[in-house]
Amino acid sequence: MDPAADQTRKKPRRPESTPAQRALALLVRREHSRPELTRKLLARGIGVEEAAAAVEKMAAAGWQDDTRFACNLARTRAANGYGPLRIRAELNSHGLGGESLAAAFAALAESGEDDWPARARDLVQRRFGVSCARTTALQRKAADFLVRRGFDGDSVRAALRVEPED
């Protein structure tokens, strides 16, 4: 066969993916919330009605579930040392609230992962050591760290007490 003839032949083009196929391709990589999935489809040039229909189709088939997404995100963030305020804000930024938010925190409570003062205390001890309670500057630094991580004031105060049983 002539090498010049091979170069002139083009590969057959794959047919254009449907909106549902694109949505599924996104969901295979990781969970997405409905608003996030819709936004990503719109960014890929899919029309508003087609994107909404594709997201609805994924939800009906069980591929997309806001509650499952919220529970997974909350569990992951809690395991990575983030507090309830930060988790709630991130869920809200994904367009979730109400039922999904409540279900995420209920799942954390059910699995025993919602002891925020204990999580904050653990985080401080790992990050700053047990001697953190002795110096005011280190306590302030630890408190700032916990607040940035999304822990509330009660959890921060509980984590910085000299005696954990106080």
Rank of each mutant, 00 (worst) to 15 (best):
K11S: 10
L96Y: 07
Y82H: 09
L101V: 05
M58Y: 02
I87Q: 03
A133C: 07
G153W: 09
A137P: 07
S93G: 14
D122H: 12
L138D: 10
V48M: 13
I87L: 11
D65V: 13
R68W: 14
E50W: 02
K57R: 13
R148S: 15
R140D: 07
F128E: 12
R88F: 13
D122K: 08
Q64F: 01
G97H: 04
A158R: 06
A4Q: 07
M1E: 11
D66I: 04
F69V: 05
Q64D: 02
E99P: 03
G150V: 04
P12L: 15
A107M: 13
R44P: 04
A52L: 12
V48W: 15
D144P: 05
S93D: 12
L41D: 04
N72C: 05
R119T: 05
A20Q: 12
A70P: 00
T18N: 12
A61S: 09
V28L: 07
K10M: 09
R68K: 12
E90N: 03
V28M: 08
A43W: 03
Q21R: 14
G81V: 04
P15Q: 12
R75I: 13
K57G: 08
R9I: 10
R68M: 10
V48P: 14
A104M: 02
K40Y: 11
D144T: 03
A53N: 06
C71I: 10
V162T: 12
D122T: 07
E163I: 15
E36P: 02
L123P: 05
E163A: 12
K10T: 08
Q139P: 01
G97S: 07
D144N: 06
D154A: 07
K11G: 04
G153F: 08
C132N: 11
L160D: 03
D65A: 10
I87E: 02
A109N: 15
L37E: 01
A51S: 14
A107R: 14
P15L: 14
R68A: 15
T38Y: 11
K40L: 11
S100N: 02
A109Y: 13
A103P: 00
A158P: 00
T67Q: 09
Q64R: 05
R22N: 09
I87C: 10
A54I: 08
E49W: 08
G95A: 08
E36R: 04
S155C: 01
G45S: 03
A25Q: 03
R75P: 08
G112Q: 03
A61P: 07
A143D: 00
D2C: 04
T76C: 03
E90V: 10
A118P: 06
H94A: 05
Q139Y: 00
Y82Q: 07
